[in-house]
Nucleic acid binder design. Structure first.
Lengths: 414, 414
DNA sequence: CTGACTTTGTACACCCCCTTTCCTAACCCC
DNA sequence: GGGGTTAGGAAAGGGGGTGTACAAAGTCAG
């Protein structure tokens, strides 16, 4: 890929906006310090964002004896972003303001057998319509819709190349959605959505190299390398769930044996439990959520079976995370997605210990393992972030090939 | 890391020189096409390299009826680069011209028990002196010495943080070397040396994402991500050899069980052989090189035991490489280092099959698995490349930090 | 309440980078 | 030797970031 000076601008624009969102009433001075850019550059970028109505001036702050600092903050009224999380059994849609606060939610169930692309698209369109109506925002203020769909995705053509749940092959998802949704659309998969969410708003902020480990029904890793998302050649990097942890181990639905996913994905954890205690009351056959919740409660209550299952799971997870640490030497490993958030700190503690047993000293010492600090659905947030990035991206290109707008007062007469 | 427009220049300088080395008599036109840069930029960079005496004009080439194209080529007489490969049992030094042809070699054996830093440094100094004398180059023409030492390395401080062979801890290797060697020194480890060698001159050239798998006594992976070497936070990325392939598998000297290295490193392959056929005549206890050579010959000759051992090894290797493919989605996986080069195509064929069995379809389809095309010691070449990069890097900074000439007329009187 | 001091933020000149455009140099062919 | 053609250099231009001068907007002392 050719790198141009424009990319620098884009990256800096991202960085400044990120910082403003993070520390919302903030001054140009603070931004300059936080981003390492010069005051002049920060001022230019802040001006750009003000013109875009993404931020507003919100008053002043005392400065030790001099002119007060002007404060800027995200303009919550300046636009809305929509994140769509398409999963195996549901479609979850959230509408955010520009500070990435949730303004409205909608959820549609996808029943087994209702998984034709047209049906799923129908759910998405309905839910998007619903959140827009709920929040009462006008269409023009919706800056974009980010859509996360599991599996392999071609984000440029908007193709869902392969969705394992439903055996979709090369579904032109974005085109189908565009027939119902008039806002700009951005497509990617949940792995990368979570990674971007952590990069912008979570534990990966400000880090050059990070790994966002996704523990859900499926398992994967979003890779942040060199300060940006690593996509790989065909946008399918991060398939850590189908990495071999136990040669000739458990059979995975991908056809292989011993995949990480079969040990630390929700079904894998249920299997860990079943192997340990086949008749445990914690086990809710056919209901992953209930089982994981029961485990979480069991660990809280000190139930030895639950503790043991989490420990066993952490043992697998630790070995697999240690592989990531040894291979990539990241600054931080973030545990994300619903299984991680439900099992919470107890899991993280066990994982830290297990990783410490497996990883090499030097890379281990440089790596922190944390739970995702994102309180809402990280996939929706990440999908919305794709939309935000898209909106920011298009700032650069001058729309009509007209001369500069010259809105600044030009030569006040006398 | 802050990216500046200067980095673009540096990257382009690298790219142009790489292209010139690859297709040595070449024209500015060709370079522009190959690099995607404009003619003007190419001309500027070529001018820079001419000024540095790294390349020379070597004549003209017919152009369909117009002014002939000026040809440039690497100036073999323009300088020399030295690559040092420090390994467990030997120190290997090569002196290259700027086209990266080997002009002289020297090898010193490191006997067990002679592994004090001072002793190793002595070997290196002797060998470096030897190659300079052999090649008969004057000191001023040696642009730099790249040094590869196994283990974890801090390239900025020149510290060998940890060398597993000799239990070195935080040895200030570069400082020790500087006492004997007057040329600019660059330190890194063999993993990254091989990766850089492939990136500049081998199978990773022109690829954004590549993995250079290093099969020697130790095992590791040099990661090329986003067109550049991935180092990780503490410069210790790539420890793929100590990634778990078989949970609770063979004991590794790193203290863990089931590391990739214990199955596909030279000692691991010997173990594969011993497990299959304890009294095989192929086995040369205590001599890895001889055993691997015997295996290679055995495969050539169709010896069923040798074929089976290579197949078993490829099975392990394939699973582990498939993990890299799934996780990183690279364009190319390069098998490098002495074990790979001796076992050659037969190994690659088996590995391709094994990877195909383990990797996911989409990433697999995007990935090519090849043997390193580099004929010489890739570690020396890579180390020398570090020196070349260093020499090119320092072009940018203006030498004397003189004040701005203040040529602007300041406040014209009146 | 005025003037000195301090700090912010903008305008502008400047440097670096790449590209486009124009023009001259250097060849071919007729 | 002129016309056609292609190579390559020089200059202009646009993008980006930084340093500096200066106006704006406060505080504080007298």
């Amino acid at each position: 890929m050719k790198r141009t000076s424009r990319d620098i601008r884009t990256a800096n624009r991202y960085e400044v906006l990120r910082q403003i969102i993070a520390a919302s009433p903030t001054s140009r001075q603070e931004l300059a310090v936080a981003t390492g850019l010069s005051l002049a550059t920060v001022a230019t970028l802040v001006g750009e964002l003000l013109d875009l109505r993404m931020i507003t001036e919100v008053g002043f702050e005392d400065s030790a004896g001099g002119r007060p600092r002007g404060l800027v903050a995200v303009d919550s009224a300046g636009g809305a972003l929509i994140g769509v999380d398409i999963a195996e059994t549901y479609v979850h849609v959230e509408l955010f303001d520009l500070a990435l606060n949730v303004l409205a939610r909608a959820e549609e169930d996808v029943r087994p057998g209702e998984s034709l692309p047209e049906q799923v698209v129908g759910h998405v369109a309905a839910a998007v319509g619903s959140v827009v109506a709920q929040a009462g925002v006008e269409a023009a203020r919706v800056l974009g819709v980010g859509v996360s769909v599991p599996g392999q995705v071609d984000r440029d053509t908007g193709l869902s190349e392969y969705a394992p749940n439903w055996d979709w092959h090369d579904v032109p998802l974005l085109d189908l959605l565009a027939e119902h949704i008039a806002y700009p659309l951005y497509l990617d998969n949940p792995l990368r959505a979570c990674a971007v969410a952590e990069l912008w708003f979570g534990a990966a902020r400000g880090h050059e190299d990070a790994v966002v480990v996704n523990l859900g029904t499926g398992v994967g890793a979003g890779l942040v390398l060199g300060g940006g998302l690593h996509r790989g050649v065909s946008n399918s990097a991060g398939e850590w769930g189908h990495t071999t942890l136990v040669l000739d181990g458990r059979l995975c639905h991908c056809g292989n044996h011993g995949c990480v996913e079969t040990y630390v994905g929700a079904p894998g954890i249920m299997l860990n439990l079943r192997e340990l205690s086949p008749r445990s009351p914690l086990l809710h056959p056919g209901d992953q959520t209930a089982t994981i919740d029961a485990l979480a409660r069991g660990v809280q209550a000190g139930d030895p079976v639950a503790v043991k299952v989490v420990r066993d799971t952490a043992r697998y997870l630790g070995a697999a995370v240690a592989d990531l640490v040894n291979l990539l030497n990241p600054e931080v490993v973030v545990l994300s997605s619903w299984v991680a958030s439900r099992l919470g700190e107890p899991l993280v503690l066990e994982v830290r210990e297990a990783v410490a047993r497996h990883a090499l000293r030097r890379p281990l010492a440089a790596t922190e393992i944390v739970l995702s600090p994102i309180p809402t659905d990280p996939v929706c947030l990440g999908a919305a972030t794709f939309a935000l990035e898209g909106a920011l991206q298009s700032v650069g290109q001058r729309g009509p090939r007209r001369a500069a707008p010259a809105k600044g007062r030009t030569a006040p007469p006398s």
